[in-house]
Amino acid sequence: MIYLIATILIYIMSKRIYKQYPKAYLTPLLVVPVVLVTALIVLDIPFQNYEKGTSVISYFLGPATVAFAIPIYKHFELIKKFMVEILSSIVAGSVVAVLSSFFLGYIIHLSGSFMTSIIPRSITTPIAMEVSKTIGGVPALTAAFVVATGIIGSIVGPHVIRLFSLTSPVARGVSFGVAAHGAGTSKAFEFGDQEGTFSSLSMIIAAGVTLVWGNTWIPHFQHLFIQ
């Protein structure tokens, strides 16, 4: 119960601070885990205790994922209109996400479980953890990489958009959604409603596409390189 209340209180405080000072490094997604991790280490609390105490919060991820049906339904016409752009760029982006994570990890000699767990890092947490399980990774480790991706994506995202001079709302939205899932999507909404909608949809489709990759070519690919 203490862990639950502490997590929610720190989250609310952090959200207030972010509202006042909307700097990328002050996002609650970064600040709250840092505060809590520090607290667990300093007070020598085992993670399992914290995890048990906050399982109610994690439960909400399920219904929240279901709730994504609502914006998709509301903007279904817009989505149908841009289907070709959305699908082709998501397929391209999700392949780049898997391959670049893998090869960059290869270059810095990541150990086996890290290497496998980093592959699905660009998609939304619940599905990334699922893909991780499928391909033999450690779901908790994948969750950590996913969160790191979200934070980094929302910090570098606006610069990337300028760098590649992405002008259409569909391109901006999709690139946020594919590269940085939920955290990227909340950044995309800062650009505009259309960007945000495209981003939330892309995040879902990208997760679905990566799930398919995890059950088809990724295992063969791993076989080829890890031995």
């Binding site: 760029s89 790191a148 992405l166 590269a179």
Partner: peptide, 29 residues
Amino acid sequence: FQILIIIMISTILVMGVTGIVADFLSKRR
């Protein structure tokens, strides 16, 4: 630190490729 750097590079690549493909197709349309 190394892991964070590779996540950053990979994220920039993914955003770039995704955005360029979508932008190209929407301009052609």
